[in-house]
Deep mutational scan, measured.
Amino acid sequence: QWIQSKREDIVNQMTEACLNQSLDALLSRDLIMKEDYELVSTKPTRTSKVRQLLDTTDIQGEEFAKVIVQKLKDNKQMGLQ
Rank of each mutant, 00 (worst) to 15 (best):
V67N: 03
M33D: 15
R46Q: 05
P44G: 08
Q13C: 03
T15W: 00
D24V: 07
S22P: 03
Q52L: 04
M33C: 15
T57H: 09
E62N: 01
A65L: 00
Q21H: 04
T47D: 11
Q70T: 07
S48F: 05
D74I: 10
Y37H: 04
D58P: 15
Q1W: 13
D30S: 11
S5E: 15
I68Q: 05
C18G: 07
S48Y: 03
L23V: 05
Y37T: 08
A25H: 10
A25K: 02
A65I: 00
L39S: 12
D36H: 11
T42G: 13
L53Q: 04
V50G: 03
S5R: 12
A17S: 12
T42S: 14
T15L: 02
D58T: 13
N20L: 12
K66R: 11
F64K: 04
P44E: 12
E38G: 05
F64Y: 06
L53W: 04
Q4G: 03
V50K: 00
T15C: 01
S28Q: 14
L19K: 01
T15F: 01
L27H: 09
Q4I: 15
L72I: 01
L26F: 00
D30E: 13
Q52H: 06
L39P: 03
Q21W: 00
F64H: 06
I10P: 03
L31K: 04
N75S: 13
E35F: 02
I10E: 02
D74V: 11
I32K: 00
A25M: 10
T15S: 15
V69D: 09
D58E: 15
L31E: 03
L54E: 09
K66G: 11
S22C: 13
E62I: 00
R7W: 03
C18L: 05
M33G: 15
S5T: 08
R51G: 07
V40R: 01
L23R: 02
V11P: 05
D36L: 01
S48R: 06
K73V: 11
L72C: 02
Q13I: 15
A17H: 13
L26M: 03
V40Y: 06
I68H: 05
S41E: 10
R29M: 13
D58V: 14
L23T: 08
Q60W: 02
L27P: 08
T15V: 02
L53M: 05
I32Y: 00
Q60S: 10
Q52G: 04
E38C: 02
Q21I: 01
N12F: 03
R29F: 15
A65V: 00
T57V: 14
L53C: 07
T47A: 15
E16I: 08
L23K: 04
Q70Y: 02
S28F: 03
A25F: 13
L54K: 07
L31T: 02
N75P: 06
I59R: 10
Q13G: 08
E62F: 02
L54Q: 03
L19T: 12
Q60C: 13
L39T: 11
Q60H: 11
K43Y: 00
I59C: 13
D55V: 09
Q60A: 12
W2V: 03
E38S: 07
T57Q: 14
E8T: 10
T57L: 14
E8W: 00
R46A: 03
Q52K: 06
E8V: 09
L54Y: 01
V69G: 05
K71Q: 12
E62R: 01
E63K: 06
V40L: 02
Y37F: 08
L72N: 13
K73C: 14
E38M: 12
T57A: 14
K76V: 09
L53N: 01
S41N: 15
L72W: 04
S28Y: 10
I3F: 02
D30V: 03
I68F: 00
E35Q: 10
N12K: 13
C18A: 12
K34Y: 05
E35C: 07
D30H: 14
T56W: 15
N12V: 07
P44H: 02
Q60G: 13
I32N: 00
D74Q: 10
Q1R: 07
A17Q: 15
T47H: 15
D55R: 11
P44K: 09
L39N: 13
L53R: 03
R51E: 09
G61Y: 09
R29Y: 08
A25D: 12
E63I: 05
A17Y: 12
T15D: 11
V69R: 09
N20K: 15
A25C: 13
I3M: 09
R51N: 10
R46N: 09
T57Y: 03
R46P: 05
T45W: 04
V11H: 03
V69Q: 09
L54D: 06
V11C: 09
K34L: 12
G61A: 07
K76P: 08
L31P: 04
K73D: 09
E8F: 02
L72G: 05
K43T: 01
A17W: 06
V50A: 01
E38A: 12
A65G: 04
I68Y: 04
Q13A: 14
F64G: 10
L31C: 03
M33P: 13
L27T: 08
D30P: 00
E62Q: 00
D74E: 12
S28V: 11
R51D: 05
T42D: 08
E62T: 03
L19R: 06
T15Y: 00
L23P: 06
N75H: 13
K43P: 02
L31G: 01
G61I: 00
R29W: 04
K66C: 08
K76C: 14
D9I: 15
D36S: 05
T56I: 15
K66Q: 12
A65D: 04
I32R: 04
K76Q: 13
D58I: 14
K73P: 03
E16Y: 04
V67R: 01
L26Q: 09
R29T: 06
E62C: 03
D30N: 07
G61P: 04
F64V: 10
L26I: 00
T47G: 11
V67L: 05
S41G: 09
D58F: 14
D30M: 01
E35S: 13
D9P: 01
V11S: 04
T47Y: 04
K49C: 01
W2D: 10
R46Y: 01
E63W: 00
T56A: 11
